[in-house]
Simulated assay, not measured.
Amino acid sequence: MNWKLMTTAAALGMAAIVGTSTMAASAPAASKLLTSIDPDKDGTADMNEVRAAAGALFDKLDRDHDGTLDAKELRGRVSAKDLKAADPDNDGTLTKDEYLALVAGRFKAADPDNDGTLDAKELKSVAKLLK
């Protein structure tokens, strides 16, 4: 991934943390999501677990199998503003790499203790991109 894309994704992640509550899931929903994406059952999700869940969701959402997600396929998971910011080629869609960069940025922003893992509380701001 290129640096500009990662920087954009990190900025989007920070916006998701300080943004509206529509970007975050409820605590019970985040806890349930954590259980479903935590194969080692350690009570946290690391970047590999989050990327795997996000990649699987991308594949599921890409109904036309063109390798990109448009606003319709994203179904409200990303605001129009965030979609534009995460779309460096300005084609109105996110490739899997662009989507995963967005997820990575939100992961980093949701990990204030920088321990490389998210507990259920921290996962709330990333949850919309994983379920």
Rank of each mutant, 00 (worst) to 15 (best):
L33E: 08
N2R: 14
P39Q: 06
F58P: 08
N2Y: 04
A127L: 07
D62A: 00
K81M: 10
L130S: 04
A27Y: 15
D91F: 14
A109G: 15
D119H: 11
S36F: 00
D97V: 09
K96R: 13
T7Q: 12
D91G: 15
A16L: 02
D91V: 12
K32G: 01
D87S: 13
D42R: 06
G105L: 14
A30Q: 06
V18A: 10
F58C: 05
V18I: 09
H65M: 00
K60Q: 12
A30M: 04
G55A: 09
A120Y: 07
A45V: 03
T20I: 02
K60M: 06
T95Q: 11
A24W: 08
I37F: 00
K72V: 11
A25L: 03
M1C: 05
A101R: 13
G92P: 12
G19S: 02
T68Q: 05
L69G: 06
G67F: 01
M6Y: 01
M23Y: 04
E73R: 06
D59P: 00
S26H: 00
P88M: 14
D40F: 01
A15L: 01
D62Y: 03
D89Q: 15
I37G: 00
R106V: 12
G92M: 12
M14P: 01
N2K: 09
D46C: 14
D40A: 01
L94I: 13
A11H: 02
D87I: 14
P39K: 13
M47I: 13
S21M: 06
G43H: 04
D97F: 06
V103G: 04
P88D: 10
S26D: 05
A10G: 02
E122A: 11
R75W: 04
D46E: 15
T117L: 13
L74N: 11
N2L: 07
K4Q: 12
A56T: 07
L83S: 10
L94E: 09
A15E: 07
A56E: 09
K108M: 14
G92F: 14
V103Q: 09
A25H: 04
D42N: 12
A29C: 01
K124T: 07
R75I: 02
L102A: 14
M14K: 10
D113C: 04
L100T: 10
L100P: 08
P28N: 03
G116H: 12
K128M: 12
K81R: 14
T7L: 11
D119Y: 08
I37N: 00
A30V: 04
D119L: 05
K32W: 00
N90R: 15
E98L: 02
R63T: 15
L33Q: 04
A127K: 04
G105I: 14
E73V: 06
K4W: 13
A25K: 06
D97Y: 08
A11E: 01
L61K: 09
E98Q: 10
